[in-house]
């Protein structure tokens, strides 16, 4: 009797229709795709995107050229050269981050005693040549100016955990 039932069940494709019902339900389920350039997924305040060099509100660079970030960088993406400026203060003459080497671990930002180098939420900086992916000091400072509001907010939210 049970074998007869099995034969009828398999000829009516009972189990297969069970499977089809599952996919049939998903046909009308809400879609999870994010239409990327138009829509973006939400970001954490600790999002680690492109780096930025920050300034104090009076316009002075925060960076004190201690080279801790260079030392902390596990992929040796940061290159720093130092010279005293006209006031005799230690100052970077060169601060390059090679974005092809960078692994966005955030160790540089963690190592920085002055919160000068930070990682912003900006991540759309693709380029067509390798040279364009080496971010120089001027570019990083400019990125810092552009994102300062967001950086300050994110750092403020993270402050009590540091």
């Amino acid at each position: 009797m049970s074998s007869m039932k099995e034969i009828f069940g398999s000829f009516l494709l009972r189990e297969l229709f069970g499977g089809l019902a599952v996919t049939g339900r998903y046909l009308f389920a809400p879609k999870t795709t994010v239409r990327y350039p138009e829509e973006k997924i939400p970001q954490s305040p600790r999002f680690r995107g492109l780096h930025a060099l920050r300034r104090y509100p009076d316009g002075e660079e925060r960076c004190v050229a201690c080279k801790l970030c260079e030392a902390a960088c596990p992929s040796m993406a940061i290159t720093i050269e130092i010279a005293p400026d006209e006031n005799g203060k230690r100052c970077t003459t060169r601060y390059d981050i090679d974005m092809m080497k960078c692994i966005f671990c955030g160790f540089c930002a963690e190592a920085c005693p002055a919160d000068a180098i930070v990682e912003t939420r900006f991540y759309e900086y693709s380029a067509e040549s390798r040279d364009a992916l080496v971010w120089t000091k001027d570019m990083l400072l400019e990125n810092g100016e552009r994102c300062e509001e967001q950086i300050a907010e994110d750092l403020g939210r993270d402050m009590k955990y540091r």
Binding site: T23, K31, T33, R35
Partner: peptide, 13 residues
Amino acid sequence: KIIGWMQTRLGPN
């Protein structure tokens, strides 16, 4: 499109 929808994707758009 249909396979995309069944996998809760959008398919080519």
